[in-house]
């Protein structure tokens, strides 16, 4: 269920899991202190309380330590984000059109497809626009999504690392059949891909030029 594959899934998963790990430790710490105090200082064991009004050193410590941890988390998240948005120059541009409730794809030579076929290991630049309401182009296995708007083009990129199929979902609510707006990324080895691309170009009478050349 969590299989991820893309240049980003490993780093997103690592960032996520490290925050989960730190959070779990702190939560266990909070729980441990809480339960220990509840037992140790129950009214039966400790009938007379002590009124400790505070401790500045402790306040400074539990402000400064989270601050350092949080800045670390911020930095890692920011770096990961920069990787996701720094699009390689040789990425192959694909135009994606969203509408209630389907995705369609257009290749550089004008070939249209209703599934996103891509050659493996090739960076793809996804140019998104909508013809009606807001949508969001989400590929869970790649750990990326980008909102799609009717009045502006949004961009994202990815590169597949193996020959496989991945789900595309719509992540911005768009009405009645929002949850049926699924599609696939089909990652093919380059020979099979060029075969498909050539045939589709001829069928739709578009000039064929290998996509592989574009990404050189």
């Amino acid at each position: 269920m969590f299989e991820g594959t893309s240049p980003f899934s490993d780093s997103v998963d690592a960032t996520f899991l490290s925050i989960v790990g730190i959070s779990a430790l702190v939560l266990l710490g909070i729980l441990a202190f809480m339960i220990y105090f509840l037992v140790r200082y129950s009214r039966k064991r400790n009938p007379h309380p002590e009124n400790i009004e505070g401790n500045v050193a402790l306040e400074v410590a539990w402000t400064a330590i989270p601050l350092v941890l949080f800045m670390g988390m911020f930095y890692v998240g920011w770096k990961g984000y920069l990787d996701e948005t720094t699009i390689p120059d040789n990425a192959v541009p694909i135009k994606v059109t969203a509408q209630m409730w389907a995705w369609s794809f257009e290749y550089p030579n004008g070939v249209r497809a209703d599934t996103l076929y891509v050659p493996v290991h090739t960076p793809m630049k996804i140019l998104l626009h909508s013809v009606d309401v807001n949508h969001s182009f989400f590929i869970p296995s790649f750990r990326i999504k980008r909102d799609v708007f009717p009045n502006r083009e949004t961009v994202m990129w990815f590169k597949t690392t193996e020959v496989a199929e991945y789900d595309i979902a719509c992540a911005e609510y768009c009405g009645l059949r929002h949850s049926y707006m699924y599609n696939k990324v089909v990652s093919m080895d380059s020979v099979r891909f060029e075969g498909w691309y050539k045939k589709a170009s001829i069928d739709q009478s578009k000039p064929y030029r290998a996509l592989g050349d574009l990404s050189q």
């Binding site: 997103v12 890692v76 998240g77 920011w78 990961g80 999504k145």
Partner: peptide, 25 residues
């Protein structure tokens, strides 16, 4: 306290940009 802490921790995960892109919405 426990549940709000979990809410806060998951908020940190959402605050990290690269993770947010995956889990938002």
């Amino acid at each position: 306290i426990v549940q709000f802490s979990i809410g806060g921790f998951t908020g940190l995960m959402l605050g990290a940009l690269s993770v947010n892109i995956h889990v938002t919405d």
